[in-house]
């Protein structure tokens, strides 16, 4: 079993990381979006001493809140900007094209390659569904009952987590075909009482996981049969012992990031306490917990082949501290996973 090593990306963003994502293929390229208004593109180099290079960085007008890779050639990326724009970036040329504009900052973008759709979610309570096969066309605007805070896609579904604990699940083929805003495939209420922080879909299209600002993760299944619904569960995580002088007990941190391993279907959670844990969704167990990172974990991403896990850390800004800056304290770690490190125990 190859030992898992962990290294840090050089030239990390100069302010907090908002999101990071690996290219879905095995090229091991990594995009990191940051509050310093840039999107960074790194390339992991394999071989002697795992490392990475900064290939490029793309400047925006405002903090970039989310980024994702585009089509299979992986030469395009899409960004969600605080400047309310959804943009496409040509990674080689650096050219940026505005795909659509929201009336409020754009919080998330996801790309579905199977359907060639780019969906963006914005604080203006809408989703924009961009049919990339028809560039230049206006996106389909889907109104949402709440403000979306997290977005994730599985092979056929799109999960939107909003305020007031609302969750909408859209069917991607429907979205791709729709000409007018379709109704969600399902609407649910979050299993968690507190604000949803992150959503991640299982790569096997079976379900999804959500996490809240109150140290909990819930795993649910798409299938709306009783059995499936009965299987859903939630658990507490990312709690640290409070020092005695504060009365002991626990401090409950937000779970900022979730990411599923593309192969094994296990998932990782990253919290405000600076830890990353790997969970076996089927077995409902925690597989391992990594050593605490120097700052809170802001974002997680597995590489397309599941060999690497990227962890973006920066001081948490949960409390909205005015004098917060991630400068100098933002780092991106990449962990090379052992063969079975992320492998669960299989279904029970």
């Amino acid at each position: 079993m190859a030992p898992s090593t962990q290294f840090e990306l050089p030239q990390p963003p100069t302010d907090a990381v908002s999101s990071l994502v690996f290219s879905p293929d095995s090229s091991h390229r990594l995009l990191v979006s940051s509050w310093d208004k840039h999107v960074y593109l790194y390339q992991l180099t394999e071989g002697e001493g795992d490392n990475a290079n900064l290939l490029n960085k793309y400047e925006h007008r405002a903090p970039v809140l989310d980024v994702c890779f585009g089509d299979a050639s992986n030469n395009e990326a899409y960004t969600a900007g605080m400047d309310r724009q959804v943009k496409k970036i040509d990674l080689t040329s650096g050219e940026q094209t505005v795909l659509s504009k929201h009336s409020e900052p754009v919080r998330c973008v996801v790309y579905s390659s199977a359907h060639n759709l780019l969906v963006s979610a914005s604080w203006d309570n809408t989703l924009h569904v961009h049919k990339l096969s028809d560039p230049g066309s206006d996106p389909l605007v889907i109104p949402l009952p709440g403000k979306p805070h997290a977005l994730s896609s599985s092979p056929t579904k799109l999960v939107v987590a909003m305020t007031a604990r609302l969750v909408h699940i859209y069917d991607l083929p429907t979205l791709a075909a729709a000409t007018s805003p379709p109704a969600p495939w399902q609407t649910r209420e979050s299993s968690l009482k507190f604000l949803t922080r992150a959503v991640a879909c299982m790569p096997n299209d079976a379900g999804y996981a959500t996490s809240s600002i109150e140290g909990r993760v819930a795993v649910e299944w798409f299938e709306d049969t009783l059995e499936s619904q009965a299987r859903k569960y939630a658990f507490k995580c990312h709690r640290q012992a409070a020092p005695e002088e504060e009365g002991g007990g626990d401090i409950v941190y937000p779970v900022n990031a979730l990411a599923f391993h593309p192969v094994y279907g296990t998932f990782a959670s990253g919290g405000g306490d600076g830890t990353v844990a790997l969970w076996d969704a089927e077995a409902k167990r925690r597989m391992r917990q990594y050593q605490k990172f120097p700052e809170a974990v802001a974002s997680l991403g597995f590489s397309g082949d599941g060999k690497y896990l990227a962890i973006g850390v920066c001081p948490g800004f949960e409390t909205g501290m005015e004098d917060y800056t991630g400068q100098g304290r933002t780092r991106v770690f990449v962990r090379e996973l052992g063969e079975t490190e992320a492998k669960g125990k299989g279904t029970k």
Binding site: G247, D250, I251, E318
Partner: peptide
């Protein structure tokens, strides 16, 4: 019986 304190400032969030 343990005390749990939520790290996030809930006033800001809610």
């Amino acid at each position: 019986g343990k005390r749990e304190r939520i790290y996030v400032d809930l006033r800001a969030v809610y």
